[in-house]
Simulated assay, not measured.
Amino acid sequence: MSDPRLVKLLGRPGPWTSAYVDGPSVLPQVEEEALRRSVRERLEGAGAPADDAAAVESTLAARNGLPSPSARVVLVSAGRVELDQGFVGARIGPERLDHAAVPRLLPLLHHLGAATRYLVVETSRDGADIHLETSGRGRSDADAEIEGDTDGITKVQAGGWSHAAYQRYAENTWKKNQDEVAAAVSDLIRQEHPAFVALSGDVRARQLLADALTDTERELIVDVDAHTRADGADSTELDAAIARAIAERDRSIIGELHDRAAADSGSGGAEGIAEVTAALQQARVETLLLDGRMLDDERTLLALDAAPWVAAAESESLGAGVLATVPAAEALARAAVLTDAQVLIEDDEPTADDAPREDRPVRDPVAVLRWADDTGARDES
């Protein structure tokens, strides 16, 4: 489903000034000022009005509280900032500075499409800290702390009958505490539908918590063998496990989309600019998948001011006005947003830092359709 604020934004007249740049850094103030000044000058060189370029520069000067590195998208029209959004993590690709009849959406959609909602549970025998997170935001969506019973929390090394009794008492206390944590986790899973649950903390507490969850809930657990709830604990292992889980989820989603688009001789999907454009014109696209390399592709389409929103030629506009000739990926993504479709961008698999980029052609856009059209099934030959 499209972001309602983007749909509203795209309904406003242009032209638009767009900036996709690095967020606040740890550079000395004089160097940051020079970078912002460079952004303003390059925007003016791209045709942006002075008021727009100045608005971008002023917006970038206002720190948004995100840690470095981060990325920032700013969209301005008629000297007014219509969107300013930051994302934790480095930019995905080069800076984009542009002035055109329609806003440059792909950097923003790239980050939004990669966002993953998940739970982080850092547990110990006396309770847990629970965080609902969305990747790229740099802050928790919600936090909860479960403070369990601490009476007799440590197993006492006594002898004979009293030793066994204390052991049982301590174990029962741990179990009671983790039952309480499990109830809170179950509620969040049911309400928020996280992609996974990153579970770290004391090893026995993790075991008891997992035992208290249902089989379906346990399938969401990404177990992290690190006691991150301890004072001064290092979160490196937890952060790495979360990154791996997000990457695995992304691969799974992309693979599923390709499978759905190809099923039944391709009747439920569209592939290639012409097919995908036609499907968007009919508002049949549920999810649009673009190759990350298509962001720099030289092919173009027409962006329209009303439905069908995108066309290869004016003869396909159905009476809508032509706003501009724009890169094909931007035109397809804009039409997808305006017809309530999801947009995802498929990046190359990560390689070693010093490995050369794979030499391959740009993959065609792929769409999963809302309803199949048997007459439009792709030829398997």
Rank of each mutant, 00 (worst) to 15 (best):
L9G: 02
G14R: 15
G14V: 15
W16L: 01
S18G: 13
V21G: 13
V26S: 12
E32C: 09
L43C: 03
A48Y: 11
A48W: 09
P49I: 03
A50I: 14
A50P: 12
A50E: 13
D51C: 03
A53T: 06
A55T: 02
V56C: 14
A61R: 11
A61I: 00
N64F: 01
G65R: 04
P67F: 00
S68M: 10
S70E: 08
V76T: 03
S77W: 00
A78Q: 01
A78R: 02
E82M: 05
L83S: 08
D84L: 00
D84E: 08
Q85W: 15
Q85R: 15
F87C: 09
F87I: 06
R91F: 13
P94T: 05
H99V: 05
V102T: 06
R104K: 10
H110C: 09
H110A: 09
A115S: 13
Y118C: 03
L119Y: 01
L119C: 05
V120K: 12
D126T: 07
I130A: 06
L132G: 03
S135R: 00
G136D: 05
R137S: 05
D143K: 07
A144W: 04
T150Q: 15
T150Y: 08
D151H: 13
K155Q: 04
A158H: 04
Y169M: 14
A170R: 00
W174K: 01
W174R: 02
N177C: 01
Q178R: 01
Q178F: 02
A183I: 00
V185E: 02
H193R: 14
A198E: 03
G201M: 00
V203I: 12
A205G: 04
Q207N: 11
A212N: 01
L220F: 07
D223S: 14
D225N: 12
T228W: 06
A233Y: 02
D234H: 04
T236Y: 06
L238R: 00
A245D: 04
A247D: 13
E248G: 12
R249Y: 13
G255Q: 06
L257K: 06
D259F: 09
R260Q: 15
A261N: 11
E286R: 14
L289W: 05
G292I: 06
T300Q: 03
T300N: 04
D305K: 07
A307K: 07
W309P: 02
A312K: 14
L323V: 00
V326H: 12
A329K: 14
A331E: 11
V337K: 02
P356Y: 07
P356L: 04
P356F: 03
R357T: 14
R360G: 07
R363T: 11
V368P: 08
L369E: 03
A372M: 02
A372I: 00
D374W: 13
D374P: 12
T375Y: 14
D379E: 11
D379W: 12
E380R: 14
E380K: 10
